[in-house]
């Protein structure tokens, strides 16, 4: 069963976001890393890039294939997680401890439209049911 921390917000595309001192910290969920399998490379956006909510702004490459990562909210890329450049496999070990990007969030109100942990858990249950 995939881990779903209570204090995060989620997207239907399996990203998470957490606000930390006014900055949005973004990553992929445990379900996502599990579905992708062994992660071998993360392609990050450039610092300073402006992204819209739902825009693909990073790519997580697993042995199986490339997976787009979509920004949960609009904002500007402040920082990317360099640790994953050297050790992308950390994403498979803990997808919540290993964030991808820190964002200056343009409109914190956008967070309200994201899924809370209960809604995300319900989504995963649906997916499980579909896939048997």
């Amino acid at each position: 069963m995939a881990k779903i921390p209570q204090d995060l917000r989620y997207t239907k595309d399996h990203e998470w976001i957490r606000m930390e001192d006014g900055v949005g910290v973004v990553g992929i969920t445990d379900y996502a890393q599990h579905a992708m399998g062994d992660v071998v490379y993360v392609e990050f956006p450039e610092k300073g890039r402006k992204v819209r909510a739902g825009e693909d702004f990073a790519v997580v490459e697993s042995v199986k294939g490339a997976n787009d990562v979509f920004s949960p909210v609009s904002g500007t890329v402040l920082e990317v997680n360099d640790t994953l450049e050297e050790s992308p496999e950390l994403l498979n070990q803990d997808a919540y401890a290993n964030w991808l990007v820190r964002l200056e969030v343009a409109d914190p109100g956008e967070l309200d439209s994201l899924l809370d942990h209960a809604a995300y858990a319900a989504l995963l249950e649906e997916l499980e049911a579909e896939n048997g």
């Binding site: 599990h34 399998g37 062994d38 042995v63 199986k64 498979n92």
Partner: peptide
């Protein structure tokens, strides 16, 4: 395509 608990690698 792979088995949970091991994986491709």
């Amino acid at each position: 395509v792979q088995y949970d608990g091991t994986g491709i690698k």
